[in-house]
Design a protein around this nucleic acid. Structure first.
Length: 270
DNA sequence: ATGTCGCGTGAAACGCGA
C-alpha cells in the first residue's frame, strides 16, 4: 500500500491547531512535515496529535520558525538543525528515519525512509543581511542533500523552500522579479540542489503552470488565485522511483482563519 | 500606494517577520 507524505507551513500551530487537526482527519497523511510552528517544544500539542494516531517530534523556538514531524509509523529523529554552522540557532530543519512497516511496502519488507522538514529562510529584504543568510543556508542544504544521496535510501526533503523555481510558478513574474523568493540567485541555489539528483515531485506529476501553495493574506490574493509555488517535496532517486502521485490540497486554504500556505502531498509506493 | 496576519510586550498599540 502506498504511503502519503505531506508538507504544510501552518503559520503558528497554536493559532492553527483546529485547522491542522481538521486537515489531518480529512487528508490522513501517513507523514506530515510541518513548518512555522512558532512555538517552543514545551508548548507543542503532542497529546492532541497522538490522539489522532501520530507520533511526533518538534524542533521549536520562541515566536518564530519551528518545524515538526508527525508520523503514523515509528520514527527516530536523526538530525536536529541544519549542519554546517554551529552559530545558527534558528529552528528550521529536522530529519527523521521513518520505519515503514512491511504491509505498507510492495515487496522488500519493512523499509526505512528518510524525511526532512525544511523551513528555508525567506531572505527579504534583499538589501539586508537576511538575503546572504538565505543563500548561505541553501549552500548548507545542498551539502546535506548531497550527503543524503550517499545513503542510497529513499529520501524526501519537504518544506517551505521560500523559492519559486520558475516564472511559471508565480502569478506576476515581473512584479516578483526582485523578491528574494524569485531572484536568480535563489533559483540557481534551488536548481543546484535538484541537479544533485533530486526530483521536484510536483513537476514530475503535473506540467500545468500557475499552480500555487502560498497566497498572501493581503489584497485578496487567494480569491484571485494569485499565489506562488514555494512549498516543495524533493525526492532522492530511490524515492522518485516510487512516486505515484503529488497534489496540492487547496482545502485548508479555503477554511476560516487559514494559514497563508496550503499542504502539498506525494504518494510513494515503496 | 495599500490592502493581512501572528507574535511578544505588557496592558493598547506598536514593531517585527512574513
Amino acid at each position: 500500500m502506498p504511503i502519503t507524505i505531506a508538507t504544510f507551513n501552518v503559520n503558528s500551530l497554536r493559532a492553527r491547531l483546529a485547522n491542522v487537526q481538521d486537515w489531518l482527519r480529512l487528508a490522513k497523511p501517513d507523514v506530515a512535515l510541518l513548518q512555522e510552528i512558532k512555538c517552543q517544544e514545551h508548548e507543542f500539542p503532542q497529546l492532541e496529535f497522538q490522539s489522532l494516531g501520530y507520533n511526533c517530534a518538534a524542533l521549536g523556538q520562541k515566536s518564530y520558525n519551528g518545524v515538526a514531524i508527525l508520523s503514523r509509523f515509528k520514527f527516530d529523529v536523526v538530525q536536529r538543525g541544519l549542519p554546517g554552522d554551529d552559530g545558527d540557532d534558528q529552528a528550521r530543519y529536522m530529519e527523521a528515519d521513518i520505519e515503514v512497516p512491511a504491509e505498507q511496502t510492495r515487496e522488500q519488507g519493512a523499509q526505512k525512509l528518510r524525511v526532512a522538514t525544511i523551513y528555508l529562510p525567506n531572505g527579504n529584504p534583499v538589501e539586508s543581511e537576511k538575503y546572504p543568510y538565505k543563500l548561505a543556508w541553501m549552500k548548507r542544504l545542498r551539502q546535506r542533500a548531497a550527503e543524503l544521496l550517499k545513503t542510497e535510501m529513499p529520501v524526501v526533503l519537504g518544506g517551505d523552500y521560500n523559492v519559486c523555481p520558475t516564472d511559471d510558478d508565480v502569478y506576476d513574474p515581473a512584479g516578483w522579479a526582485e523578491d528574494a523568493l524569485c531572484k536568480p540567485e535563489s533559483r540557481a541555489h534551488f536548481r543546484a540542489i535538484v541537479n544533485l539528483g533530486y526530483t521536484d515531485a510536483f513537476r514530475a506529476v503535473c506540467s500545468e503552470i500557475n499552480r500555487y501553495t502560498f497566497w498572501d493574506y493581503q489584497a485578496g490574493r487567494w480569491q484571485r488565485d494569485e499565489g506562488l509555488r514555494i512549498d516543495h517535496l524533493l525526492l532522492s532517486p530511490q524515492a522518485a522511483d516510487c512516486l505515484s502521485d503529488c497534489q496540492i490540497d487547496r482545502y485548508p486554504r479555503k477554511q476560516e482563519k487559514p494559514s497563508d500556505h496550503t499542504p502539498i502531498w506525494c504518494r510513494l509506493d515503496l
